[in-house]
Each structure stands twice: as C-alpha cells, then as structure tokens.
C-alpha cells in the first residue's frame, strides 16, 4: 500500500492508504477529522471543501496520494484554541446554519472567498457559493454571516 505524508492543520502526518483512497477518506477515517463532511457522490455539494496549499477544493474529488507533501487546512484547523475563527464566529452570530451539515464546507469556501476578494458584493458571495449546497437555510443568513465577516475585516 502506498504511504502519504502531508501537513494537516499544521501537524505533519503520514498514513498508509490505497491508491483509490480519497483525501476526505484519509481525513475522516484515518485521521479522525470528521468535521469535513460528505454530502454527495457526484462532486456537487461542497460539504467536503478544504484548503490544499491555500486554495479551496473538494476533498471528495482528489486522491489522498495526490496530496503528498501538501499543506491541508480543514474546519478543525481554523479556530485558535477556544477562540473561533472570525468566519465561524460570524456564522454563529448570524445563525448561518440550521442542521449544520453543509457548514464546514460553507465556512471553508467563505474563508477562501474573502482571501481572494475581501469586500465581495452580495452577488459575488452568492455566485461563489454555487458549489456549496444547503438544504436548510435558504442561504440568506449564510450570506449575511459572510458579509459581516467581511465588514469586520474577516
């Protein structure tokens, strides 16, 4: 079995994986990082979004072996100890979730948006979230949370 070494949330890790093991399976099943969710098997829902070397990608659509040597950031890596990341804080403050299933992917996508575009318009926020599907909220409070995080300088 191939082994893969990478940095996840600042920690160096190595694991034995199959060639077909997806990054999300490595994160959830081998590393116990179950904050990254799997909401579909068609690469469409965005619940699994993490950052690989600083860009948002769908961890269900990349092989673990492809991530050799990369730097991966998951939802678990955002908070500093007990202090939530400002985007997480904004989602809590503005009630940007109901069941919470889509939330890890939403937050990771939103953090990447503000990195590329610190002051997005409402339309730009909605367009950026095209690949993050939420069955509960109707998106309204999610957009509000991201606007608030943007105004607070993320």
């Amino acid at each position: 079995m191939p082994s893969v070494s990478l940095t996840v949330n600042g920690r160096k890790v190595s694991a034995e994986v199959e060639q077909r093991t997806l990054l999300v399976q490595l994160l959830r099943e081998k590393l116990g990082l179950t904050g990254t969710h799997v909401g579909c098997d068609t690469s469409q829902c965005g619940a699994c979004v993490v950052h690989v070397d600083g860009t948002s990608i769908k961890s269900c659509t990349i092989l673990a072996v492809q991530c050799e040597g990369t730097n991966v950031l998951t939802i678990e890596g955002l908070a500093q100890g007990d202090k939530l990341h400002p985007m997480q804080e904004a989602f809590r403050e503005h009630h940007g979730l109901q069941c919470g299933f889509c939330t890890p992917g939403m937050v990771m996508s939103a953090v990447d948006l503000l990195k590329n575009n610190p002051k997005p318009s409402e339309r730009e926020i909605r367009e950026w979230l095209e690949g993050n599907i939420c069955r509960c909220t109707g998106y309204h409070n999610i957009v509000k949370a991201i606007q608030a995080a943007s105004q607070a300088g993320r």
Partner: peptide, 9 residues
C-alpha cells in the same frame, strides 16, 4: 464553469 472549487482543479 461549474463552481470555484471545480475551477481550482
């Protein structure tokens, strides 16, 4: 094309 995460890959 698609969405941001698709365009990143």
């Amino acid at each position: 094309i698609g969405d941001p995460a698709v365009r990143n890959r």
